[in-house]
Each structure stands twice: as structure tokens, then as C-alpha cells.
């Protein structure tokens, strides 16, 4: 019998709500598990109230639910690591997947170092090598310029996986599976204390269907009003390139790019954005891209489906009017 078996998904939750990346991982995990003839299992750390059945409906054969009403209510890395390590050591999955969210990327390396196994960061592709049935982990590196194919030499084969890269597992209430509850491990004298969550505006650019972004072509912070209006008539949200965030025009939650958010909307409109590689890294996977820029040689036009060479101060207001007329 093999020592290690199964594809484990770490399920991320906040306030009892399951992060959607976990459903994407479940979809991929099912595919991989079927290829190697193994089970899909979940490691869920959170209050007992969370309905673990949802994970069964999304394709898990087993859910290991580490229950605690308090300690999983904060992004406290040490506590999560301790509990996840305990489950992995006991259940010995062959493959272990984490969402490459800020939280996943903060805990997974610590889990891997504890177990002395490998960890591949921020994967955009996962496949089984048919020759040795091992996991091939594909990830961009060198600021998105190359794709590396990586294999782990130890078990479990562990990776963090980029959000919005795979489709969510379909929900099917007729699916059955097993939920096994575990009690939590608490850390004595935890060196880290979470003092408070600074509640800021709840704004999530990564889920938007339409993103209208502005770049250096925008002259003053007030001019974001017209960008906001265009986003509003299209049912979308406002994005920004890095320089405007640095100059304090708009908050970081709106930043699109390598060091900001990666978005994949149905429509991305780039207004006055030249299109540096760092910006492209955050938006090049949009379904449709429209670029508006007065400089016809701006690199943004190379990756845009449609381009308008012109002044955003003339075009954006006209576009708002035309959309309003269409909808009227």
C-alpha cells in the first residue's frame, strides 16, 4: 500500500464564508485525483457552523473539519499552520493545494518548511505526468516572462494556485461524502497577536465583470469622476495603473498590475494607460480589451482588441453619452 494518497485542498474561509478559490481548487483536484485514481479531500479550519456539505457538493470525497469557534476568526498564521500540519501528517495526502491568496501564500511556505517538502508558488497550470504519475506544476516567473514546469521530489507535492485560473467545481447536491470533525490545536504563548481589523471600504476589483482603468493620461484626482461614470454605466468598477495610486489619486484596492490586483473581466477599458509590462501582467487576460490613448505607439495597443487613438477627455464623456442613449 502507498503511504501517501489523495489530493488535499486547503479550504480558505473568512467569517464562515468559503473563498471561491477553494471551489476552483476542488474542480482541478477532482480532475487530478481521477487521473491517479485517488480521493479528493479537504482541510477546513473554522467554526462548526460552516456547512462542510457544500464542499461535498463541489466534489470532495472527504472533509476534515478542524472545528474551533474562535481561533480561526483571524488571519493568524501560526495557529493555522499548526492545525494544517497536524492534518497533513495524519492523513498523508499525495498532493496538497492552497489558493495563492495573500493568506494562502503566507501559510503554505511555513507548512512546507515544517514538513520539509517542496512548494511551488502561484501555479497557473497543474497536470499529471503520464509516465510517472507525478504532479507537474506550471508557474510564471521572471515577472511573468517565462513559464516553468516544476516537479516535487518529496511528498506531499505541494503548490499554491492562482485565483481565477481554473473554473469552479460545479455544485451537485446529489453528491455524497464523509465529514470528519477534528478538535483544534491551540498555541500556547502565541508570539503574534492580531490587534484589530481596520475596516476599509469593501471593494473587490477581482470579481468585476467590467473594469475601467485610468493611467497617467489622467490629469487630476477629480477627473476620476468621468472614469467612475463610465464604469457605472457599464455596470463595472474603477481600476488604476500604479503611478496614480502612488500619487494618491486613488486607493491601492483599485491598482491593477504586477504588484497590485490581477483582473480577468469580460471587458477592460484602459484610459490613458501606456501599458508597461507591469500593468499588462494584471490585465492581459481580460476577455476583451479596449485601449484609449493619444499616443498611437503606446504598447497597450499591442494587447488590445480595440484601440482608439485620441484624447480620453474627449472620448470618455462621448462614450458615456452614447451608452446612456443605447440603454434608454
Amino acid at each position: 500500500m502507498k503511504n501517501y494518497s489523495g489530493v488535499m485542498v486547503f479550504v480558505e474561509q473568512k467569517n464562515k464564508e468559503i473563498h471561491r478559490v477553494s471551489y476552483e481548487l476542488l474542480g482541478k483536484a477532482r480532475e487530478l485525483a481521477d487521473q491517479i485514481n485517488e480521493e479528493v479531500v479537504c482541510c477546513l479550519c473554522g467554526p462548526s457552523e460552516i456547512d462542510a456539505n457544500e464542499l461535498i457538493y463541489r466534489g470532495a470525497d472527504k472533509v476534515f473539519h478542524v472545528q474551533d469557534e474562535e481561533i480561526f476568526g483571524n488571519p493568524e498564521v501560526m495557529t493555522y499552520v499548526e492545525n494544517i500540519v497536524k492534518i497533513i501528517e495524519e492523513k498523508k495526502p499525495e498532493i496538497c493545494l492552497f489558493g495563492a491568496t495573500s493568506f494562502g501564500r503566507s501559510i503554505a511556505p511555513r507548512v512546507a518548511a515544517t514538513l520539509k517538502c517542496g512548494l511551488t508558488a502561484d501555479c497557473t497550470g497543474l497536470a499529471i505526468d503520464e509516465e510517472d504519475m507525478k504532479l507537474v506544476q506550471i508557474r510564471p516567473a521572471f515577472s511573468e516572462n517565462i513559464l516553468a514546469h516544476i516537479k516535487s521530489q518529496y511528498l506531499p507535492q505541494m503548490a499554491t494556485v492562482r485565483y481565477k485560473e481554473f473554473d469552479e467545481a460545479k455544485r451537485d447536491e446529489s453528491k455524497t461524502g464523509e465529514i470528519i470533525n477534528f478538535s483544534s490545536v491551540k498555541i500556547k504563548n502565541n508570539p503574534i497577536e492580531v490587534l484589530e481589523e481596520i475596516t476599509e471600504e469593501v471593494f473587490n476589483i477581482t470579481d468585476a465583470r467590467v473594469v475601467v482603468s485610468a493611467g497617467k493620461g489622467l490629469k487630476s484626482p477629480e477627473d476620476f469622476k468621468m472614469i467612475e461614470e463610465l464604469a457605472a454605466v457599464l455596470g463595472g468598477v474603477v481600476g488604476s495603473s500604479r503611478p496614480l495610486v502612488e500619487d494618491g489619486f486613488i486607493s491601492k484596492a483599485h491598482q491593477v498590475g504586477y504588484s497590485g490586483n490581477r483582473v480577468k473581466p469580460n471587458l477592460y477599458i484602459a484610459c490613458g494607460i501606456s501599458g508597461a509590462p507591469q500593468h499588462q501582467a494584471g490585465m492581459k487576460e481580460a476577455d476583451m480589451i479596449l485601449a484609449i490613448n493619444s499616443d498611437p505607439s503606446a504598447p497597450i495597443f499591442n494587447i488590445a482588441d480595440y484601440g482608439i487613438v485620441g484624447d480620453i477627455y474627449e472620448i470618455v464623456p462621448q462614450m458615456i453619452e452614447k451608452i446612456k442613449n443605447k440603454k434608454a
Binding site: 507537474v136 499591442n302 480595440y306
Partner: peptide
Amino acid sequence: GSATMVKKIEVPKAVHRKGLLWRDNMD
């Protein structure tokens, strides 16, 4: 001492879209 090995490096083509460009007559 490494737990992972790079098996292959791919250099993907730069994304290039067909790009319909309007230069004049904004209307």
C-alpha cells in the same frame, strides 16, 4: 537539498491581439 526541480522552461509568445485601431472620426 532541494525539494523541487525545474523540468522545463517555456518562453510564451507575447500576447498579441488582433487590434482594430480607430485613428480618426471618433463618432
